[in-house]
Each structure stands twice: as structure tokens, then as C-alpha cells.
Design a protein around this nucleic acid. Structure first.
Lengths: 107, 107
DNA sequence: TCAATTCATAGCCAACGGGTTATCAATACA
DNA sequence: TGTATTGATAACCCGTTGGCTATGAATTGA
């Protein structure tokens, strides 16, 4: 039972796949052909990665004739941002606890 | 040549490993034994994961007698935060471009 | 000093993942 | 209508990874 964090981290863990996503973020919508021409892998490999990115909700596809245009779905990063904030939150609350402890010891 | 993002995403992609890191964030410093007792895997497996987390800079270890205490190194998450901000930045700048374009078309 | 505890390392194995080539479906065009 | 183009799917290969057991090193305590 993989949760949203699992899927996001796993999907973005592969450098090639993350590069595709970054490119879509930087340059906006791209066809599979355009993405393949810059990637150093075959077109089927690119399609596979795009399929996984789509499953993770990180990209959308739009069919136009025989071309497929992909674009980044940036909102999908939200759980990742939330997770990092949550972890940082625990950090700070523990730090506060320490501070409180020290303050109480001061009195 | 794996960069910082590679290492972070790959290290956090495994659910078991991420759970260990989360636990260290939530509850602070823990010994290997304490972490193992809650995890559903063997002690050597836990040690392996902790080793990878340490290599990624996500945890520190502190030896005390025959025990090893691990704690989260939260600053290590910074590149991840930066990356998400960067991606969001591209998104917004492209949105601004579109807005500018529409504004110019309005005149 | 000997036994027990704590953790790390080594070696092994099954599953997964990312790459390839081959091929097919759908669309565009001469 | 026949051919070329575009992208998705299938089948396969191989390196990586995450789990295990066995074992060793270091420390503690009887």
C-alpha cells in the first residue's frame, strides 16, 4: 500500500525521469519526440518514464493528431513540500522542548 | 556522477528507510536496538539502511560504549526544499510570461 | 577472564527497475 | 490507397537493491 510520498519519492528518484520532469517545468509543454531528441535514451524508454510520471500525477498528456504533448503538473509536488515541512516541524518542536527545558533549569 | 538531489531522492525513496528517518525526526536520537525493535526487519537490515542514510548526510551517529545512537540531520533536506522551490519558480515564471503575453495582446 | 550484549560487515538470493529491440495502432500525407 | 511518421506496448536482459543468515569486533559485567 504505497502512499503519496512513496510514489513521489520513487518516481523522482530516477535521474533520467527527474530530468524529464525538470525539462517540462523549465520549458513547458513538449512532445515525446522533442523530449526524446534531448534525452540519451530510446523513445520507448522515454515513453515508459512519461507513463510513470503520469501515474504519479506529475505530468499530464494531451493528444493532438499523432503527437502527444506532455506538461508538468506542479501541484503534484505539494505532498513533498508538506513532508519536508512536517519533518522540519518536528525538528523545531524538539528544539523548543530543549529550549524550554533549559529555561526551566535556569529558574 | 550523482548530485545531491540524486542521493537524497534515492535514499528517501525506500519506505523502510524513510520511516527510519521520520522516526528519528519525530522522536529524536535513537539506538540501533530501539529502531530495530519497531522496524519489521532484521537488525543488519536496519544497520544497512542507517549506513545509507548516513552516507546521504541525513543522519549522524554517536558511539557510546557498545551502543550507537543515530539522530536526524535535518539540514540535509535543504537541497530538496530548494529543488521544489526551483520547480515552482519555473512554473510561476512561465505563468507570468503567459500573463505578460495576454496583457500585451490586450493593448 | 569468560559470557553476554550490541552493532557492523560479509555473502547470498529473489525481486525490481531501467534499458534495449521489435512491433503495432493511429494519424498524416503524397 | 499506400507510405511515412509518431508514440505506446511487449518481451527480454542485466545490474541494482533490499532482505536474510552467519559471523566478527568491541564493550560490558559477572
Amino acid at each position: 500500500m504505497p502512499n503519496a510520498h512513496d510514489v513521489l519519492f520513487k518516481t523522482l528518484a530516477d535521474p533520467t525521469r527527474r530530468a524529464l520532469f525538470e525539462r517540462l517545468c523549465r520549458e513547458g509543454e513538449q512532445t515525446v519526440g522533442a523530449l526524446t531528441s534531448e534525452a540519451r535514451i530510446s523513445q520507448p524508454a522515454v515513453s515508459k518514464h512519461l507513463g510513470l510520471l503520469k501515474q504519479a500525477g506529475l505530468v499530464r498528456d494531451r493528444h493532438e493528431g499523432r503527437q502527444t504533448h506532455y506538461s508538468a503538473e506542479l501541484g503534484a509536488l505539494a505532498p513533498l513540500v508538506d513532508w519536508t515541512k512536517e519533518m522540519a516541524g518536528f525538528w523545531e518542536s524538539r528544539f523548543d522542548d530543549l529550549e524550554n527545558l533549559l529555561n526551566r533549569m535556569d529558574q
